[in-house]
């Protein structure tokens, strides 16, 4: 939450001019959301916490948490971590240059490209992933094309690579948009000032643009990394039964009616999410004040 707030800092501070009475009356508008939040975020979390820390007879136990030390579960967590790190990095490498180009392009063409990036999001997430399944299958579209050119078929489906493709495809917009948003807010005169003071375009990028865009990068990383780490849909559809991520393990536990084990593993996963966010935001703070001369 804190990270996303960072990106919008400049907007919210500008709008601080409301009168107190206005602010008080506007406060009422947040009540529906607060009720929503309590009912669908806070209460479920408490329920998960309860199930995760209790056994079949409602007795307090850490056994559910300890399930993570089970070799199979631990392996699936590490695999999930690895795949989400890789897909986050790929997203970053694809998104940053794109966002830079978008910043420079004329307003019309940039909004067109943004539209193209967002367009897939208008289709259902499941459908998109199933489409990738059709493309990557043994007898799928990709291999049909390869066969047409008498090239050897590729076995991508049901491998970690397929899952990474699915993650990158589905989450790339969440990396592009926050980075584009901060980049477009950088005052052209700040960049001109760096050039004016003798920096060539590479130095300007390194010392000015990169620094000023870090909040967007952080927010992009969070928005790609966290859903990648916890996904089970992408791995189910593109990984088959061969590749198990921690998300699949948790899903299986819930499907088997084993709420306690599922909740316990969910808590462990949540700790990892919080930990990674803490590391990211710590880096954010470090780079904010001091430059990397």
């Amino acid at each position: 939450m804190k990270i996303i707030k960072n990106v919008n800092k400049s907007e919210t501070t500008n709008e601080g001019g409301l009168h107190l009475s206005q602010a008080a009356s506007i406060k009422w508008l947040s009540f529906p959301y607060i009720i929503w939040m309590i009912g669908f975020i806070i209460l479920p979390l408490i329920v998960i916490l309860y199930y995760g820390l209790t056994g079949k007879e409602d007795n307090f136990t850490l056994d559910n948490i300890a399930l993570i030390t089970d070799y199979k579960n631990w392996k699936s967590l590490l695999l999930a971590l690895r795949l989400s790190v890789i897909s986050t990095l790929i997203c970053l490498l694809l998104a940053y240059p794109l966002a830079l180009i978008l910043r420079k392009s004329k307003m019309n063409s940039s909004s067109f490209i943004v539209l193209i990036i967002i367009l897939p999001m208008w289709m259902n997430f499941l459908l998109r992933t199933i489409a990738w399944q059709n493309i990557l299958e043994k007898t799928g579209i990709l291999n049909s094309i390869l066969r047409f050119f008498h090239l050897p078929a590729l076995e991508i489906i049901n491998t970690p690579a397929a899952i990474i493709i699915g993650m990158v495809y589905n989450f790339l917009p969440f990396m592009v948009l926050p980075i584009f948003n901060v980049l477009i807010k950088i005052d052209q005169n700040v960049i001109n000032a760096a050039r004016d003071l003798g920096a060539n375009s590479f130095q300007t990028f390194l010392k000015i643009i990169l620094h000023l865009s870090i909040p967007g990068v952080i927010s992009g990383i969070t928005m790609v990394f966290v859903p990648s780490l916890t996904t089970f849909v992408i791995s189910t559809i593109l990984g088959g039964s061969k590749v198990l991520l921690i998300g699949n393990v948790i899903e299986q536990q819930f499907r088997l009616g084993n709420w306690n084990a599922g909740s316990g593993l969910s808590l462990v996963l949540m700790v990892f999410v919080l930990l990674s966010m803490a590391i990211i935001s710590k880096y954010d703070k470090e780079s904010e004040g001091n430059s990397l001369w």
Partner: peptide, 26 residues
């Protein structure tokens, strides 16, 4: 060198680093 309309200072650097920018490049 140019002095820009809305200052265009580097908000992620201290005053000293701002002033030193051109000299460090050189």
């Amino acid at each position: 060198n140019t002095v820009f309309q809305k200052y265009a200072l580097f908000s992620h650097m201290t005053i000293a680093e701002n002033i030193a920018f051109g000299l460090k490049i050189k």
